[in-house]
Write a protein that binds this DNA or RNA. Structure first.
Length: 450
DNA sequence: TCTGGGGTCCTAGGACCC
DNA sequence: TCTGGGGTCCTAGGACCC
């Protein structure tokens, strides 16, 4: 087994095909992450079709390979697929973010024992980039394989590893090896011009990291179908047609020129949002205000967790609208309003007061609403964290109260303590009927059968 | 009946200044 | 009658990601 030390060899990297020494990046991506987390505690579901639903049990957001094989697709509405799902005995879960968050932490910590911590960039809940600059070229494949085995063995979560000279190319490799797990062993290293070109030819433009729906269609109109064709376009063209510097960077990365570096972990967010679909459409301003107050409480908790205070509060609502002829579904317009606070704050009641007031600006009597949200921004370090000489004592006391509420809500069930404005009936609350136990973060939900 | 949630970055264009 | 140009800052909106 490769140990940590075996990666940190200082000998020069040899045999690099592009002429000068350059590093490689790996993207480590958990396979069907949410489903994998559920399976860790339900080994009986191994090789069974499994899916996980979005909040509100709205649509499918994670599928096991078996579920994919049945023909279930990403983001298909649950209510539509339900008959099919039941017929094929697909095991179905509501999302359990406590569980996934904790499993994510375990995966990332494992990666940090395999390479130096500074060379791990946690990119999302289920993905991390690794800087493999310390690994000799001829050992890349072996190292990638080792990463895959170690993570699976230590956490129970299977991952795929793509390795290439740039981040974008590593994503290309990762995607390809996931497509054919049996052959690739969930690992792919593309480290020569030939391998890179081959991989690009096998990748549709829409599957490139950074090319979304809009650009994919635009590229198609230019007659560009696969990543190799895109790679051959010149950089000025990309700047003009693919969103300025974003497009330019993309082309360079496809050509093997690294322009996206490892990024420091973003510990402080620049904005914080809490938004939800309602469990059922909502009509009254009272319900909207309760929902807004509740979401604001969440935002305030998140603010305090990162020791920030917000100076801007904005809210939005989305009315339910009937689809037009021929459409099966239509998003309503987003109606928003914001306010600049007299001073930045992380105190729940101050934020709630501002947010609820904004509801009057956006609410129209007679409309039916399906979604609402709160965003706080203009974040600054929270001056009230430590008792502060220059703010009134009452604000310092409030801060202590907030700390107590956060502690109680964290250690007991969610929302054991809440503000009256959040309501008690909560007609609007989302559905979440199929959630598994929070095995790893609640004592009373520990796994007992494994 | 029922179609997720939470982020980031970039650009264009307006306001303002000298 | 004629009314510049360049810089900065801010915001809304668009695009993307998982």
């Amino acid at each position: 087994m490769l140990t940590k030390n075996s990666y940190i060899k200082t000998q020069p990297v040899t045999g690099y095909p592009f002429g000068r020494r350059r590093g490689f990046y790996a993207i480590v991506d958990c396979n069907s992450f949410y489903c994998s987390c559920e399976r860790v505690f339900r080994p009986d579901l191994k090789e069974q079709p499994v899916i996980v639903l979005s909040n509100n049990d709205g649509c499918v957001i994670s599928m096991s390979d078996e579920a994919k094989k049945l023909g279930i697709t990403m983001t298909v509405p649950y209510f539509q697929a339900k008959p099919f799902i039941e017929k094929h005995k697909v095991e179905t879960f509501s999302s359990n973010y406590n569980l996934y968050g904790d499993m994510s932490w375990r995966v990332m910590e494992t990666l940090k024992t395999i390479v130096e911590e500074d060379n791990v960039e946690v990119y999302s809940v289920d993905e991390a980039f690794l800087d493999l600059k310390d690994i000799p070229h001829e050992q890349l494949y072996e190292a990638a394989l080792q990463i895959r085995y170690t993570v699976e063995q230590w956490t129970g979560v299977a991952v795929s590893v793509g390795v290439a000279p740039t981040k974008v190319l590593s994503k290309v490799a990762n995607r390809l090896c996931k497509k054919d797990k049996g052959v690739s062993n969930c690992v792919m290293v593309i480290d020569t011009p030939e391998k890179i070109n081959d991989a690009l030819c096998r990748t549709k433009v829409g599957d490139i990291w950074g090319v979304g729906h809009q650009y994919a269609e635009k590229l198609k109109r230019f007659g560009i179908d696969d990543a190799y064709q895109l790679r051959c376009m010149n950089e000025e063209w990309a700047r003009k047609n693919l969103g300025g510097v974003t497009g330019l960077r993309l082309i360079k990365e496809l050509k093997g020129e690294p322009v996206m570096q490892m990024e420091d972990e973003l510990d402080e967010k620049k904005m914080i949002a809490t938004t939800r679909m309602f469990g059922a459409p909502v009509k009254t301003i009272k319900d909207i205000k309760e929902a807004i107050a509740t979401y604001t409480s969440r935002c305030a908790e998140k603010l305090r967790r990162q020791q920030s205070a917000a100076s801007v509060v904005s809210i939005f609502v989305v009315p339910k609208v009937a689809p037009k002829d021929g459409e099966r579904f239509r998003h309503g317009p987003t109606i928003s309003a914001y306010t600049v606070l007299p001073h930045a704050t992380s105190l729940t009641h101050e934020l709630i007061k501002a947010a609820v007031k904004l509801v009057d600006e956006v609410y129209k009597d007679g409309s039916l609403y399906k979604k609402a949200g709160v965003t706080v921004s203009g974040l600054v370090p929270d001056e009230s964290i430590q008792g502060n000489l220059f703010v009134p004592e009452s604000r310092n006391n409030h801060r202590m109260l907030m700390g107590m509420i956060d502690n109680i809500n964290f250690s007991m069930r969610d929302d054991a303590l809440k503000f009256a404005a959040s309501g008690t009936e909560r007609n609007w609350k989302m559905r979440q009927e199929l959630r598994s136990p929070r095995y790893t973060s609640r004592w009373d939900e520990l796994c007992e059968t494994v």
